[in-house]
Design a protein around this nucleic acid. Structure first.
Ligand SMILES: [Mn+2]
Ligand SMILES: [Mn+2]
Ligand SMILES: [Zn+2]
Ligand SMILES: [Zn+2]
Lengths: 139, 139
DNA sequence: TTTCTAGTTTAGAATTATTATAAACTATAG
DNA sequence: CTATAGTTTATAATAATTCTAAACTAGAAA
């Protein structure tokens, strides 16, 4: 895969969600999606990594806006683990996580690695939106 | 059960955890623990309910301090559900929850109501701290 | 190509949840 | 009763996030 091809791909991807392919968004796309493995992050860590090298600076407000836009568009998934801080995941498929309370890091658990053989029915009028497990681990 | 007996009980309970039985703490104990069913709350809702009636006012700082002290003492459990807001539970036994994204309310699921027939081993050097499931529900 | 405009970026202000500070108050040991 | 460590409280500080409004820009239309 060649970088320029990726760029074109991201332009398509953004356009298809009615998001203009700005240089900020493309930079964030390259950073987030041009990788082999799942990436888990907070806005704070993403901001640091995006603005580490001396290229064009992306403002913190734009990082927030973009993460929100990408989540709405289905390119990112929000993972609820930690109180007071939002975590995001480039793996948008349904899957589970380990959450390390020490390092505060998430690790994927493939969906098939956890089997829920008994699940309660939700209260009437309500349906299950999501059944992903977060297993808290520590030393 | 008579209120005055409860009061004595809470005095014991607090003393046994090296917490002085102040009138603020006893008021919060009465409110939280003198009830049949599990109570789920945030600091915001607890503060409102404690200070609704025209009795002695308990400051927000004390609500925070007390919830923290009771959680450390094992009288309350923190439930991680919502980003950016801490939820607490008077049911300190290991159990699961429904979390309604609309009403933002928690409902207990008894531990036996969910069966995890396959659970991955944690990364080496790490152990599972907690395996409680939060099932997100919506209309 | 230039023009127009809605969408976007940005710095900074505002908001929300929580924690820290430090002075006044109080439970309780002696 | 007195001393003192623990507690409460108003308020300030911090952290994460959202809001605001002005400057900027992508891309449609002229
Ligand atoms: Mn917070
Ligand atoms: Mn927050
Ligand atoms: Zn993941
Ligand atoms: Zn519960």
């Amino acid at each position: 895969m060649i970088i320029s091809n990726n760029l074109k791909m991201y332009v398509q991807k953004l356009r298809s969600s009615n998001l203009r392919p700005t240089k900020q968004r493309l930079k964030i796309c390259q950073f987030l999606f041009n990788r082999e493995k799942t990436f888990h992050f907070t806005v704070e860590t993403l901001n640091k990594k995006i603005n580490k090298n001396k290229g064009m600076k992306v403002s913190l407000a734009t990082i927030y806006n973009t993460v929100e836009a990408f989540t709405s568009a289905g390119y990112l998934k929000e993972i609820l683990t930690s109180k007071n801080k939002s975590y995001y995941d480039t793996n948008t498929k349904s899957h589970h996580h380990f959450y390390d309370e020490g390092s505060k890091e998430l690790t994927d658990i493939h969906y098939s690695q956890i089997k829920l053989s008994k699940v309660p029915t939700p209260p009437k009028g309500k349906k299950i939106k999501n059944l992903e497990v977060v297993i808290r681990i520590q030393k």
